[in-house]
Write a protein that binds this DNA or RNA. Structure first.
Lengths: 118, 118
DNA sequence: TAATGTAGGCACTAAAAAGTAACAATTGGA
DNA sequence: TCCAATTGTTACTTTTTAGTGCCTACATTA
């Protein structure tokens, strides 16, 4: 059994890493299919996306729904347990916003223009 | 200038990684000197600790105070800006606690017994 | 007939993060 | 004289994380 020195380490095990918080921030807004997520995160590769989604599913925070169609359609959404992360995700997003304003007061284009999704 | 796709990426740049949240969770409780932090985090190496502390200092969330003594005494604490992370840190700690309870209901010794610090 | 779109697997390589070990500096005390 | 205590640096190695390219499946559409 995994051991932690302090409880917060258990949270980091679930949502730590480069991508998971970003994925969750997108999914908390709306249910998304794989390709949409990939377009929302221009930096991620198919491999990493799949891998991170699998781990989040494993930890019970997201749901993977496969529709039996061709071409395939897979949708990801937060589970009820995933929604218990809402407070954390909201706080992180808000802090990120104000940190950008504080750090780049001239507010040039620090944020990449979001692309068309659907 | 660094570019972000969504603002939360800016937050992850400051508190992301394996150690920073843990360090901040300790410092939010009380001011600590280097050796205390090292004992509080049995898994961290001197190098990683120093490196992470430098980066946190660089980002303005912690303060490094050097006392001119021999042997040296260095104390770390949260800056005012660092305290703006309190909501996030509290939420993460709380989520971690309940996640442990949910995941290991038999509640054996998932938490390593904390060692003596001072 | 042949290309298109979607999700994802696999083998391999590259880059980033983290760990290891040895060394420095200073001064009080054995 | 030499060691202990505290914080930190540096060079090097290992581990983890991430990226690339190529392959599958199959109904629809051109």
């Amino acid at each position: 059994m995994k051991k932690y020195n302090i409880p917060v380490e258990a949270a980091l095990e679930v949502i730590g890493g480069k991508w998971k918080v970003v994925i969750l921030c997108h999914l908390i807004k709306e249910k998304r299919r794989t390709g949409e997520l990939k377009r929302l995160m221009p930096g991620i590769t198919q491999k990493m996306l799949t891998q991170q989604l699998r781990e989040l599913e494993e930890d019970g925070v997201i749901l993977r729904e496969v529709y039996n169609q061709v071409p395939p359609r897979v949708e990801y959404s937060l589970t009820k347990y995933g929604w218990s992360l809402k407070g954390i995700l909201d706080a992180l997003c808000a802090w990120g916003e104000q940190h950008i304003e504080k750090t780049y007061p001239e507010k040039d284009s620090v944020l990449v223009k979001p692309i068309e999704i659907k």
